[in-house]
Amino acid sequence: MTGRFIPHAVLTLAVLLFALPIWIAIAGSTQDSAVIARGELSLIPDLAGLGVYRDVLLHGSAGAGPVWRALLVSAGMALVIALGKIALSLPSAYAVTFFRFPFRMTAFWLIFLTLMLPVEVRLIPTFQVMSNLDLINSFTGLTLPLVASATATLLFRQTFLAIPDELVEAARMDGAGPLRFLRDILIPVSGANIAALFVILFVYGWNQYLWPLLVATDPKLDTVVIGIVKMIGLDTATEWNKVMATAVLALIPPVAVVLLMQRWFVKGLTEGDK
């Protein structure tokens, strides 16, 4: 028993460390804003205050629009980014892995190089490009620059490299052309990896802050993350219960995605599904 005590203590502590802030947000969202501001937050939720969720969803708060809209923008953005990245990196990884063409490795290293230049680094030039294309304050401008992805290309390349040559050859003998092979063999075989990547990319897209802040000033394009920040007013009184309710709402979709795809996620990251 003593041998198990320390591990358990450490684990319990870790769980508390992670869970407590979330619990405080949930409990806080149901309480009066003024009470929270005074620092007298209770850890027991006040069930009478649950109406705040309906309130923020439909009407939002001072300084920010209704949360349902922001959630929709966030979900749209995260989906477009995740699916767009997969749609783009799957064929590019396919090309650099399975085909021999001039400057193949150059192409691969150029893709690789962009790993060192994330959006945050190329913020100003990217903004300039979007501005020239007249894409400021549009959904396209919000998502497009985040779609190109070296990470996903690299991950797919690794997956494809692990596919036995004989499988490729068997498909060639069966008469499968390149596109057929991609559709009938490669994508199904890499299914778990695609699912795992989708989870990671969805969360990545959902958490975007800097770029949406810069490129979309139209409140209609506010993501939920931006919405939370806008709710915290600098001079007006902040409605903390609404901020916390929005934070809890913002938490649900990525958690749902992770839980729903957990089985695939783990499978994709651990085994190769071969």
């Binding site: 036995p164 004989e166 499988l167 050859e169 068997a170 498909a171 060639r172 003998m173 069966d174 008469g175 499968a176 009938d184 063999i185 199904p188 075989v189 299914g191 599904d273 071969k274």
Partner: peptide, 19 residues
């Protein structure tokens, strides 16, 4: 191309489509 040669091959590691 292999598919135009009217041949069939059996591989050492079977090379079956796993899915």
């Amino acid at each position: 191309d292999p598919s135009e040669r009217d041949i069939a091959m059996v591989f050492q590691n079977y090379a079956l489509y796993p899915h």
